[in-house]
Simulated assay, not measured.
Amino acid sequence: MTTSTTAPELLDIPARDLLTVDGTGGPETDGFGRAIRALFAVRAALGGTGDVPLEGTYTQGDDLHGFDLDAPDGWHWRLAVPAPSASAAAVATAAERFGAPVHLRRSRAQRVARVLHVGPYSAERPALAALYGFVAAQGLVPTDGHTEVYLSDPATVPAEQLRTYLQVPVMMVR
């Protein structure tokens, strides 16, 4: 198995509207798959066009550094895709049609530390360690769980070639 990681970097992400679904457990669960299908179905029903990346923000317990890749049963996740221009009422109507708990949320602008991981999701541990090491070396602290921005479709791309941004929102230690 071959993996690679780019050097971590800091960037600012503007506030934006997202379609989201919250859940628990690992990506192998039925709920995770249903959430993904619901997000893209609602997005399409609202007129969303183009290929957009899926994002997943993951936490586990109260320790933002304590995320355990080997214990997905304890994961809490929020899956998201960029929202087309739509009202909360339109999202609720579309979500109801699909029987899905999709919500419209406005994310806040934030500074993130980010690294590109190339390879299977199961091999992200060194990339996450590099990301959190970079955060500490910059005198920053995470303010929430880490987010994975999936740039490749695992249904069509071999695991060794999957491209995923791993990022974490940060702030200066005071």
Rank of each mutant, 00 (worst) to 15 (best):
T5F: 07
T6D: 14
A7K: 10
P8L: 11
L10T: 06
L11N: 11
L11I: 05
D12W: 05
D12C: 14
R16S: 15
D22L: 08
G23S: 06
G25S: 03
G26P: 00
P27N: 04
P27Y: 15
P27Q: 08
D30S: 10
G31R: 02
R34T: 14
A35P: 07
A35T: 07
L39F: 10
V42D: 00
A44H: 04
A44R: 10
L46A: 02
G47P: 10
G48L: 02
T49F: 00
D51H: 05
V52A: 01
P53Q: 01
P53M: 05
P53N: 10
L54M: 13
E55M: 09
G56H: 08
T57Y: 06
Y58R: 06
Y58T: 13
T59P: 00
D63H: 11
D68C: 01
P72L: 05
G74I: 03
W75T: 02
W75P: 02
H76T: 14
W77D: 04
R78A: 03
R78E: 13
R78S: 11
R78L: 13
L79E: 10
L79K: 06
V81Y: 05
V81H: 04
V81Q: 12
P82V: 09
A83R: 01
P84Q: 02
A88F: 00
V91A: 01
V91W: 09
A92L: 12
A94H: 09
R97E: 13
F98P: 07
G99P: 13
P101C: 05
P101K: 05
V102F: 03
H103Q: 15
L104W: 03
L104P: 13
L104V: 07
L104D: 08
S107L: 14
R108K: 15
R108L: 13
R111H: 07
A113R: 10
A113Q: 06
V115K: 02
L116N: 03
H117Q: 11
H117C: 12
H117Y: 10
G119W: 08
P120Q: 01
Y121I: 00
E124W: 06
E124A: 11
P126E: 06
A127R: 04
L128D: 05
A129R: 15
L131T: 08
Y132G: 05
F134T: 01
Q138T: 09
G139Q: 12
L140S: 09
H146L: 15
T147R: 12
E148A: 15
E148C: 07
V149C: 06
L151K: 09
S152H: 09
P154K: 07
P154N: 01
A155E: 12
A155M: 11
V157R: 10
E160R: 12
E160I: 00
Q161E: 13
L162C: 03
T164Y: 08
L166M: 05
Q167N: 03
M171T: 15
R174D: 14
R174Q: 15
